[in-house]
Computed example of a mutant assay.
Amino acid sequence: MKPLKQRSTCPVSTSLDVLGDRWTLLILRDMVFAGKSTYGQFLQSAEKIATNVLADRLAVLEAQGLLTKAVAADKKSKFTYRLTEKGVDTIPIIIELVLWGAAHCPTVTDTGLLAELQTGKDAAVEKYKQLAREKALT
């Protein structure tokens, strides 16, 4: 894995250096809202990420401290991924992107999550943060 090259000291730019490719936030989304935690589960996402890209993005997320990787309890050749506290801190960002996409992209169809966010965004943020923290302990 190549190290991330920081383009500038601007907070937006440095955040995009970590989160700004087309796959990273989708992996984090799947961890938060779909409970995915293994390589095979990530491959099943509707967006069809290539295996080499997935491996690279997981390695970058681990190297940047957003997730941890551990040997799975059920199979020694399988790994599980869990969000770190730094990864948990991306949940409000992802939720804001969900809301923005729902407001500005007419093809959005995830009405269950949208309904939850529209009835109480702050409560939903805390709920998903807590769920991610609990999953990290298992």
Rank of each mutant, 00 (worst) to 15 (best):
L117C: 02
T14C: 09
D56Y: 13
A59R: 14
R29W: 13
I91M: 10
L25K: 15
A136C: 09
G101L: 02
C105E: 12
L137M: 13
V32A: 12
Q130V: 10
F33M: 03
T84H: 11
P11I: 14
A136W: 03
L58D: 01
T138R: 04
S45H: 00
W23G: 08
D74R: 08
H104L: 06
V108N: 08
I94C: 14
L61P: 03
V71I: 15
F33A: 01
R57C: 07
E47C: 05
K2M: 13
L54D: 01
E96K: 13
K75M: 07
L54S: 09
L113Q: 08
L43Q: 04
V18P: 07
L54K: 01
L117E: 01
T138L: 14
I94K: 02
E62K: 14
S8E: 09
T84E: 03
I93L: 13
T119P: 02
R29Q: 11
L114G: 03
A59E: 13
L66H: 11
R7W: 05
E126G: 06
R82M: 04
E134S: 10
D30F: 05
A46I: 02
L97M: 15
S77A: 11
K75P: 02
S37T: 03
P106K: 06
T109D: 07
Y39T: 08
S77M: 03
T109E: 02
L67H: 08
G120P: 00
I93Q: 08
K78D: 06
T90I: 11
D56N: 11
G120V: 06
Q6E: 12
A34R: 15
V98D: 06
W100V: 13
T107I: 01
P3Q: 08
W23T: 08
L99N: 01
Q64I: 05
Y39A: 03
R82L: 10
L117I: 05
L4M: 10
A103L: 08
A63R: 13
L67M: 14
D30P: 01
F33I: 00
T51Y: 05
T14H: 06
F42M: 00
A103M: 04
